[in-house]
Amino acid sequence: PPDDERKKAEKAARSGNEEKAREILERLGYSEDEARELAKRLR
């Protein structure tokens, strides 16, 4: 489910793995720019 994926992205971002967070968010349908912004904010 998307919620689980989003949680994974948050966890990745918090542990400093912004790249992985961005990949997950892009898979969820965010654009590259949106995903980058979100990954930064989740950190």
Rank of each mutant, 00 (worst) to 15 (best):
D4Y: 09
Y30N: 00
K11M: 15
A35K: 01
K40L: 09
L25Y: 08
A9C: 00
A21W: 06
S15R: 11
E32L: 07
E34V: 07
P2S: 12
D3M: 11
A21P: 01
D33L: 13
Y30E: 01
S15W: 08
P2W: 15
Y30A: 01
R36M: 08
Y30W: 06
E19T: 12
P1R: 14
S31D: 06
L42E: 02
R27H: 08
K7G: 09
A12M: 11
S15D: 15
E19D: 11
E18I: 15
D33F: 11
R36C: 03
R43Y: 12
D4H: 11
A9V: 06
D3N: 11
K8N: 11
A39D: 01
R6A: 08
N17T: 02
A35V: 03
R27T: 08
L25S: 00
D3R: 08
R14H: 09
L38A: 04
D4Q: 13
G29D: 01
I24L: 08
K40S: 12
R6F: 15
A13R: 03
R43Q: 10
K40E: 14
A13T: 04
R36K: 08
R6P: 03
R14L: 11
L42I: 07
S15L: 12
E18Y: 12
E34I: 06
D33A: 14
E18V: 14
A21E: 02
E34A: 10
R36G: 03
K11W: 15
I24P: 00
A12W: 15
A39W: 02
A39L: 14
K40Y: 13
K7V: 11
A12V: 06
K11E: 15
L28W: 04
L38P: 00
R22Q: 07
S31N: 09
R14S: 08
R43E: 05
E10D: 05
K8I: 10
A21H: 02
E23K: 11
Y30P: 01
N17Y: 08
K11V: 14
R43W: 12
E5M: 14
G16R: 02
E23I: 09
G16Q: 03
S15M: 12
Y30G: 00
E10F: 12
Y30I: 04
R14G: 05
A39P: 00
Y30H: 06
A12T: 05
R36E: 06
P1Q: 14
D4L: 14
G29A: 01
A13N: 02
E26L: 15
A9Y: 05
D33S: 14
A9N: 03
L38D: 00
L28V: 03
S15K: 08
R41M: 12
E34G: 03
E19G: 07
K20Y: 11
A13I: 06
R6V: 14
L42P: 01
L38V: 05
D3E: 12
L28D: 01
E34D: 11
G29H: 02
R22N: 02
G16W: 04
E37S: 08
A12K: 03
L42K: 02
L38M: 14
A13Y: 04
L25F: 13
I24W: 05
D33H: 11
R43N: 10
R36H: 05
A13E: 03
P1D: 15
N17L: 07
A9R: 02
L28K: 00
R22S: 03
L28T: 01
K20G: 09
S31Y: 00
R41E: 07
R41F: 12
E23P: 02
A9G: 03
G29K: 01
R6M: 15
K7Q: 13
A35Q: 03
K20L: 15
E19K: 13
Y30F: 09
A35I: 06
R6T: 08
E32F: 11
R27P: 02
K20Q: 10
D33W: 10
G16P: 02
E37G: 04
E37K: 11
L42A: 06
R14M: 12
K40H: 15
R22H: 03
E23Y: 07
L42H: 05
K8F: 07
R41W: 12
E37A: 12
A39N: 00
E18C: 00
S31P: 07
A21D: 03
L28A: 07
E19H: 08
D3G: 11
A13F: 04
E32I: 10
E34P: 00
E18Q: 07
E23Q: 11
R14K: 13
E26K: 13
N17F: 09
E26D: 01
R6L: 15
R27G: 13
S31T: 13
G16M: 05
D3K: 08
